[in-house]
Design a protein around this nucleic acid. Structure first.
Lengths: 364, 364
DNA sequence: CTGTTAGCGCGTTCAT
DNA sequence: ATGAACGCGCTAACAG
């Protein structure tokens, strides 16, 4: 038996009954198909809808239609402030287009990520934005290439080959620009500090760019100790004159980070060293594992938001990725593909990062 | 004409046809109703589902059922890192319960908030978590009391009278604890710095607690200039001995903040002053409008996350609200009400904040 | 200008 | 042990 009508939201049938027309007419009204509708019924419908407080049921609409105006978003780790900025941008675009967001945090867990994506699909999302936790390239690639699946875009990540739209920062250019700055500031040695890079494309890109810059501009530090092989001539890669040595420090936990930093600082005694963190969180880890970093004797810089970096410690030089714009760009691209019939080839979009210089690299 | 079947996801009917049974049997299988099912059909169904990659359509399920396993969340301003922590907690609880999240940022705009809520309702959410932008109490109260609407809970906000579950921090206790600390640190004057408080219950609560503490423990600063009327005796409110004067500084923009702070610092020349910010963002505003705040001559403290506060400036004493726990608590309460038949009276749940002491109040 | 009918994918009596 | 048939709320031919 249908439940006592009293406490259920009115359906299109209720409105139709109240007005004394068929559901079709109401449906037409809802979609602005007034073409052949008498002004009078139109008015009566209008009044009745108002009176009953009728609102169309989106689930029912979506069930009929082939689209839900729903976009699924998976976030590697939503507690990261960077993620919330991404979401802000996604939201802005989606609000403007009347799209709702089904959001799923995956706790840095690839298995959860796969489950979340399946679950979003079950909810009939029209498209997917994936800020992948990493280690899921095979799954994602298969997903993107299998037809029948909705369009997908990766955010702050990419997959190779490019089988979907990928929105990232131009990490290589950012790294180069930062290192140019450090060379200009006469640092002798730079350490790129990062959590394990293997699974996260962004990190790999940065590490690669870092290594190739160092290879071109000076002497890379050997594992057992860095030697500064000063080269007099500029390399082809950069216009800035000067040399710099460097190395990558990957860490899994604070203890490892502490050990690594102590070793490096011992090896580099007497030289001007700068720590280049992969992100804000990493910089906090550095502070925690190696408080001396805050003394002002070491240079510091990071991929980080201006707002955060400006007031951390004495102000930390940063590459701001403008995550809000990244999110917005990503959502716009995806929406165009879904709703505007955009069928351009998939692309890897690399947005520039902004170098913001503060005391941590200039007053050392 | 139904579209060329080829590229559409299989429906329950397809599975039924493939197995050679009716949809009913498949449906039973899906819901674990094996009671009277032959082991053989069961196996065949299992195989076919696997083979076809069939997954039930949640929209269709929800359309029939009275619940969608969808919870709507509106966030006052999602770019705030605090919000992302709230979301983390909400997510954790909801993931555990198989609930999906429809998230909506409302850009600090009450009108957008109302629209977002209506829109979420249209999507048949089973419940609503509202981190209101403020200035919407009438709407929210009406919403909560009108039956037919799904359960709602407010997060980091409350509405009075309590017509729904409200999860907040115990702001009054937090303010008291912080002020006790400042008194112990021999500060003479405290300024509670906040964006306009009127619309946000949290802020009002804090300002009220602040004023009443100051009234009890010392002399409140007059509008035209603060005079320290030292009182020798403890008041009834606190066990800590000592007096402190104080005032509230509300600002609308950086210019206003700068003017206000300059006035106050001039008035309080020679006294030990501490600025008490309502949140992280407010503290950044202070840094921006009044860089001298970073000199170490003024005390600083705030409602803020430990992780942020620890490494901002030289370390800022803070009241950490543990937003992840807040979010989780809120989601758990709401889910219990929706799905577990919890019908206890609505309550205002005030979770304690943790006082974390750093250099900004101890090395001044 | 409006109504009839069929069905989106699924769950659920009720019957067998 | 399994199916037929109806309906959730809505849309879209196809009539008239």
């Amino acid at each position: 038996m249908r439940q006592s009508k009293a406490n259920r939201k009115p359906s299109i049938a209720d409105v139709a009954a109240a007005v004394g027309v068929s559901k079709t007419t109401i449906s037409r009204y809802l979609h602005g198909k007034y073409d052949y509708m008498s002004a009078e019924t139109k008015e009566r419908i209008d009044a009745t809808i108002e009176e009953l407080g009728y609102r169309p049921n989106k689930m029912a609409q979506s069930l009929k239609a082939s689209n839900s105006h729903l976009i699924g978003v998976t976030i590697a780790n939503i507690s990261n402030p960077f993620s919330s900025q991404l979401l802000k941008g996604i939201q802005a675009e989606c609000r403007a287009r009347g799209i709702q967001l089904l959001v799923s945090d995956v706790d840095d867990n690839p298995a959860l990520e796969r489950a979340a994506i399946e679950s979003l699909l079950d909810s009939q999302v029209d498209g997917l934005i994936v800020n992948t936790a990493g280690d899921n390239d095979d799954y994602l690639t298969e997903f993107a290439t299998k037809d029948g699946n909705p369009p997908m875009a990766t955010l702050d990540r990419f997959i190779k080959p490019v089988v979907c739209d990928c929105i990232t920062t131009d990490n290589a250019a950012g790294v180069d620009e930062m290192l140019d700055h450090l060379v200009a500031q006469r640092f002798d040695h730079v350490v790129f500090v990062t959590q394990p890079a293997a699974a996260i494309t962004t990190r790999v890109t940065r590490v690669t760019a870092f290594r190739s810059y160092i290879a071109a501009h000076g002497a890379a530090a050997g594992a057992a100790g860095a030697a500064d092989i000063a080269g007099a001539a500029d390399t082809a890669t950069g216009a800035i004159s000067g040399t710099i040595s460097g190395e990558v420090l990957e860490y899994n936990d604070l203890a490892g980070l502490e050990t690594g930093l102590e070793r490096i600082m011992a090896e580099q005694a007497g030289r001007r060293v700068c720590l280049f963190s992969n992100n804000e969180d990493g910089m906090c880890d550095i502070f925690e594992a190696y408080p001396a970093a805050l003394d002002g004797h070491i240079g510091l810089c990071a991929f980080a938001t201006k707002r955060w970096a400006r007031y951390s410690g004495r102000g930390i030089t940063c590459l701001d990725q403008n995550p809000v714009r990244m999110g917005r760009t990503c959502a716009a691209k995806l929406a165009a593909r879904i709703y505007d019939g955009d069928d351009s080839p998939y692309e890897l979009l690399e947005l520039p990062a902004e170098l913001c210089i503060y005391a941590s690299t200039t007053e050392v």
